[in-house]
Simulated assay, not measured.
Amino acid sequence: MSIPEIILAFFSILMLLPTLASLTKYDKWWIRGFDFPRIQISFLILLIISLSLVYYTFRDAWHSILVILLIGSFIYQAVKIFPYTIFAKKQVHKSKGSDPKGMISLLISNVLATNKRSDKLIAHVQTYKPDLLLTLESDQRWENELSVLEDEYIYKVKIPKDNFYGMHLYSKLKLEHIEIKYLISDEIPSIHGYLWLRNGVRVRFHCLHPKPPSPSEDDTSTNRDAELLLVGRELNAEKESVLVFGDLNDVAWSRTTKLFQKLSGLLDPRIGRGFYNTFHADYSLLRWPLDHVFHTIDFTLIKLKCLKSINSDHFPVFIKLNYDPGKKSFQERPEKANGDEKEWANEKIEDGNPQETDI
């Protein structure tokens, strides 16, 4: 074996590991971590395949075996991310919004607690004028600095925390029946309640920021998965309008997020439009979508955009939706979870030892 063959064989085997890990249901952080960089993994696999075609003679059977395995691995990764490309069918229809009273706009921003540039977020708010502003990781200092918005955003839910899981919701739209819940951990709050659109339609909403699987946060993805799946299981998307938004610390194409959609029946406006990567703002080659907005079938999309950096590790996201129940017959709901998927979801929720199951 030549040195190029040895090097290529090593990296070929290395690039097969993410796919093998993704095929398992183990929830250790280092295994579930492979769910995130599927875009980067796909490009690296293509690079290894290209180099293999240059340096392999294919006289030895293992040359062909490794290349075939790499092609299979690339196909697996590509299938996972394909729905979030412009080549896939859009899950949510585009709308110009004929009735201003039926529109709702949201700006979601993980501000990074140590970030001092609140002025950049405030500038975005002044430019895009969202109906709702949700901040994650916001502490008392952030609350104080965002107080300049309170004359315009008269409805507020404030949960300042110093543990990177503070949460603040500012709304121009009327809020009611607001509940702050700690679904899985007494360190991780979430906001639940109803808002009223200007046309008199009441919408159920849930603001989430579960803990990510990582060596510094949580050894497994169990708690994150349990929170997302619990909310997805308990939603009633067929009887009321629903919005779920926040930093979910999970990518759109993961098993958990896809199952959340199946359980909840909510739509993802990114499908067919792009990745809308929000993290990590500082590393252009290491980005994936962690901040999400899901909604019921009675909303269509007017605008979706990742905004310029506010010096956080997340880019803010702005979305504008139109309440349009007439589009229900034109938009397809996600397929429903089957028996095995529901059983797995129930097991994950139980493993998370939820403190509250009524959302």
Results as ranks from 00 to 15, higher is better:
Gly246Trp: 02
Asp250Lys: 03
Val244Gly: 05
Ser264Gln: 02
Arg255Ser: 15
Trp253Cys: 10
Lys258His: 13
Thr257Leu: 12
Val242His: 02
Asp247Trp: 01
Ser241Thr: 14
Gln261Lys: 15
Ala252Gly: 07
Lys239Asp: 12
Val251Ser: 11
Leu243Tyr: 06
Leu263Cys: 08
Asn249Pro: 13
Ser254Cys: 08
Leu243Ile: 11
Lys239Leu: 12
Leu248Cys: 12
Asp250Gln: 10
Asn249Leu: 06
Gln261Tyr: 11
Val244Glu: 02
Gly265Asp: 01
Asp247Tyr: 09
Glu240Arg: 04
Lys258Glu: 15
Ser264Val: 00
Leu263Trp: 01
Glu238Gln: 14
Arg255Gln: 13
Phe245Lys: 03
Arg255Glu: 14
Ser254Gln: 06
Glu240Trp: 01
Glu240Val: 02
Leu235Cys: 10
Thr256Arg: 05
Asp250His: 06
Asn249Cys: 11
Ser254Lys: 03
Phe260Tyr: 09
Phe245His: 07
Ser241Arg: 11
Ser241Asp: 13
Leu263Thr: 06
Val251His: 05
Thr256Phe: 09
Ser254Tyr: 01
Thr257Glu: 10
Glu238Pro: 08
Leu248Tyr: 13
Ser241Val: 05
Ser254Arg: 03
Ala237Thr: 07
Lys262Tyr: 09
Gly265Met: 01
Asn236Gln: 14
Ala237Gln: 03
Lys258Gly: 14
Phe245Trp: 10
Gly246Ala: 10
Val242Glu: 04
Arg255Gly: 10
Leu243Pro: 00
Asp247Ile: 08
Lys258Leu: 15
Asn236Cys: 08
Leu259Ser: 06
Ser241Gln: 12
Arg255Asp: 15
Glu238Met: 11
Lys262Phe: 08
Leu243Phe: 11
Lys258Arg: 15
Val242Asn: 07
Phe245Met: 13
Leu259Asp: 03
Gly265Leu: 00
Leu259Gln: 01
Leu263Glu: 03
Thr256Gln: 05
Leu243Met: 05
Val242Lys: 05
Gly246Cys: 04
Val244Cys: 07
Ser241Gly: 09
Glu238Arg: 13
Val244Ala: 08
Leu248Pro: 07
Leu259Gly: 02
Ala237Cys: 12
Leu263Ala: 06
Lys262Trp: 12
Thr256Lys: 04
Thr257Trp: 02
Thr256Ile: 07
Asn236Glu: 12
Gln261Glu: 14
Phe260Met: 09
Leu259Pro: 01
Gly246Tyr: 05
Val242Gly: 06
Leu235Val: 03
Lys258Cys: 14
Phe245Asn: 03
Arg255Ile: 10
Asn236Ile: 04
Thr257Arg: 08
